[in-house]
Design a protein around this nucleic acid. Structure first.
Lengths: 237, 237
DNA sequence: GCAATAGTGTCTATCAGACAATATTGA
DNA sequence: TCAATATTGTCTGATAGACACTATTGC
């Protein structure tokens, strides 16, 4: 057994391998996620249903799982440098009618795309909770629910919403992004103390708004990792 | 098989798919991880090197990724109901010389196994940091480092060490487990307040130790999910 | 009694949140 | 000047950690 050549040992059935990405952004004061419509072709599972953007790993084009996720994201949104984090993997014999399949799920945060891209026949930005309630293809409903839960959970103690905004942004804008994701208001003073003490922002010069006092603009220091706060918001309640 | 279009569409090369598990326990006052020796057969990559326990998904035996991870764990340790959590996935064209491969990594926490199982020719319980320093097969060094980092990180604000102990356990025993993983002493009073206030423990009757006062024994209420504390240990320092 | 361990009480520095006050801009 | 927004200051309740104290067990 052990001395069989490579080819004999590897001659077993392999699962299908795909990558799916939950892409979030803030549009029109809402947390939204990008959904893609499944193709209608013959033999396609769940034709016409909404799903997360994604697809099979192409072993000749994709150098790695992350590269594959970035490729999907670039194809769908044009964004090349999002905040991208692994969410988890889902794999079993039944989730895809075409055979044993496993998918590597990612979630990405990007600044608001241009309004023109907000909705087409094959892709649509949908409010996050509404998207979870839709009957998505495969087990994408479960995956998306996990993504939303992870995002909301981490927003309680990390700087993730900074990746949802175009830079430079002001502290009131950042607070607004937090409030949209968490769906509750935050105290201005406590919020500012927390953000500035965490030290993950760098000055980017003053920014004038439509009216009122000019605010300081900020950029995130390190785009790869979010800051982690030692406590969650509203720990006492 | 299905119709022609299916077969044509799915006739592309598929990656190899495996599952690897970082299995942790506390033995002799140390945080240890189980390593397995790679087989020596011809065509085997990294023959004789230490690695994480794991292997290819068997699409006929494994109903899901999690079932596959549980199977590996049962084979290596006999443990059927560990704390098991997805760690992440690693996949690229180069990590396995046999071809484009992706692995789904899990980490498991189990109570100390019987001493007889502590080390054999093909498996060994190695102190966690020492294991990270060893030159493991494939990219298992990177995966194990991520597992240790995740474990240490989560121990700061979750009840994970409770899964490293046989039940029932006492609060001093639990504190000791925390101190072993974190490699620093914790204050007894603050520790007890935190554990009991979190409400994840249930009484299991008194337990007499080797000497001194009898202590209260505890079990975890819910074995599937750890408790999450609102703050990390030593937030101020 | 003593040693050893389990468990509790008290004090204090810290700090997140509440909310009031002040600063800056454009009209 | 006012309206609108940004930014800062002050107070206070909650609490984690430090550390001393008390409780229980076996010998």
């Amino acid at each position: 057994m052990k001395k069989d050549p490579d080819r004999a040992k590897l001659a077993f059935e392999r699962p299908l391998v795909s990558v799916d990405v939950a892409i979030f952004s803030v549009l029109e004061g809402e947390l939204r996620v990008l959904l893609a419509r499944r193709p209608e072709g013959e033999g396609e599972p769940h034709p016409g249903r909404w799903s997360l953007p994604g697809g099979f790993v192409d072993v000749h084009r994709d150098a790695s799982l992350q590269a594959c996720a970035l490729r999907k994201l670039k194809e769908k949104t044009g964004v090349a440098s999002p905040y991208l984090e692994q969410l988890g993997s889902w794999g079993d014999a039944k989730r895809d009618p075409r055979g044993w399949s496993s998918t590597h799920a990612y979630f990405a945060l990007i600044p608001a795309p241009a309004p023109a891209e907000a909705g087409t026949a094959v892709a649509e930005w949908v409010q996050a909770d509404e998207a979870v309630r839709r009957r998505l293809a495969f087990d994408h409903g479960e995956i998306l629910a996990a993504a939303v839960e992870r995002l909301r959970g981490k927003v309680e103690y990390t700087s993730l919403p900074a990746f949802l905004l175009p830079e430079p942004f002001t502290l009131p804008e950042l607070q607004h992004a937090y409030e949209i994701v968490l769906a509750r208001p935050l105290d201005k003073s406590a919020f500012r103390k927390r953000m500035l003490d965490a030290g993950f922002l760098e000055d980017a010069g003053p920014v004038s708004g439509a009216s009122g006092r000019t605010a300081m603009g900020y950029r995130v220091r390190e785009r790869a990792r979010p800051a982690v706060f030692p406590r969650t918001f509203r720990s006492g309640e």
